Simulated scan of single mutants.
Amino acid sequence: MESIELKLPLSAAGRRLDQTLAELLPDYSRGRIQHWLETGQLRVDGEARRRRDKVRGGEQICLHTNPALEVQTAAPAQEIDFALVHEDAHLLVINKPAGLVVHPGAGQPDGTLLNALLHHNPELAALPRAGIVHRLDKDTSGLMVVAKSLIAHQSLVTQLQARLVHRDYRALVRGDLISGGSVDQPIGRHPQARTKMAVVASGRPAISHYRVLKRFGHCTLLGVRLETGRTHQIRVHMAHLRHPLVGDPVYARARQPFPAHAPAAEALRNFPRQALHAIGLALEHPASGETLSWEIPMAPDFAQLLTELDQPPEVRE
Rank of each mutant, 00 (worst) to 15 (best):
I4M: 14
R15T: 12
R16Y: 09
D27A: 10
S29Y: 10
R32Q: 14
E38N: 07
D45N: 15
E47Q: 13
I61N: 04
T73I: 10
A75D: 08
A83S: 13
H86L: 08
E87C: 10
A89E: 14
H90Y: 14
I94M: 05
I94W: 01
N95V: 06
H103A: 09
P104K: 02
A116M: 08
H119W: 13
H119Y: 09
N121E: 07
L124E: 00
V133F: 05
H134A: 05
D139W: 04
L143D: 03
M144I: 06
A147F: 04
L150T: 01
H153C: 09
H153F: 13
S155I: 03
V157G: 05
Q161L: 05
V165F: 15
H166D: 10
H166L: 10
Y169R: 11
L177R: 14
G181F: 15
G181N: 15
V183I: 15
D184R: 15
Q185L: 15
K196S: 08
V200S: 06
R204W: 03
P205A: 15
S208V: 04
G217C: 07
H218Q: 12
E227W: 07
T228S: 11
G229N: 07
V236Q: 05
H237A: 08
A239H: 00
A239I: 00
R242D: 10
R242E: 13
P244L: 11
L245Q: 02
A254P: 06
H261C: 00
L268V: 06
P272M: 08
L281M: 02
P286Y: 00
G289V: 03
L292T: 07
I296G: 09
M298G: 11
D301T: 12
D301C: 14
F302P: 06
Q311G: 01
P313I: 01
